[in-house]
Design a protein around this nucleic acid. Structure first.
Lengths: 107, 107
DNA sequence: TTTTTTGGTAAGCCACAACTTACCGTATTC
DNA sequence: GAATACGGTAAGTTGTGGCTTACCAAAAAA
């Protein structure tokens, strides 16, 4: 199950701040680390985790590395969460089906 | 931000197994702990975390306690994830708007 | 009323995750 | 070429999260 890395990555508050900083546009590490309560290497380590979880992309330009949101990763999480409704719909449909066939569809 | 508890709760693989076991119907603690690689008290502790995150409900019947999925909690997470697309849509709309007003709407 | 079932809580252990500082390599710029 | 900017990685520390066993309270069954 590859959801593990995504959940783990998003469970950390600092990493979520990083992700939210990338909402608007790609940013460099120094840019991201700016105004953050943790050191630049810490941010670097968080970015590694986010990258391995498939939540960010990197593009190196000169000595700078631009990190950007990778929304496919987030989409994966959404899909997983959707799974918690499938059964509700299924059981409801089954109930309706059962009733329709039990009383001849009077309801 | 109340998302923290939900993310933390869902980041643990054992807790996700518990949640998935509750998909179909409410279950007792012993029922949930059955076939799990961890002890019954461990499951009890996990259920506490899930409850505090708003992901499960409890109903006590006699000495047994039936735990059930609380989908509003999961829905909250979905809403948060949705936030990562809003900006995309907004910036796209802004771009289209800008272009329409720049060249008189030829595209 | 004793015994059994059910499950929450306390205490203690241990692994790991999130930091820090120190260091290094590689592009720019002077 | 020397100095500076940028950022990844190593090593070490520390708090905490998940587990275990032991214990306790309450309801049901005997």
């Amino acid at each position: 199950m590859a959801y593990q890395k995504i959940f783990t990555a998003m469970a950390d508050p600092t990493r979520r701040i990083v992700l939210e900083k990338l909402k608007g546009k790609p940013r460099t590490v120094a840019d991201i680390a700016n105004d953050m309560p943790v050191s630049r290497p810490a941010v670097s380590q968080h970015l590694k985790v986010l990258q391995e979880a498939g939540l960010v992309n990197v593009e190196a330009i000169g000595t700078r590395r631009f990190y950007s949101l990778r929304r496919e990763g987030i989409e994966k999480l959404r899909k997983y969460l959707d799974g918690f409704w499938e059964d509700v719909v299924a059981s409801y449909a089954a109930k309706v089906f059962k009733r329709k066939n039990a009383d001849g569809g009077t309801e």
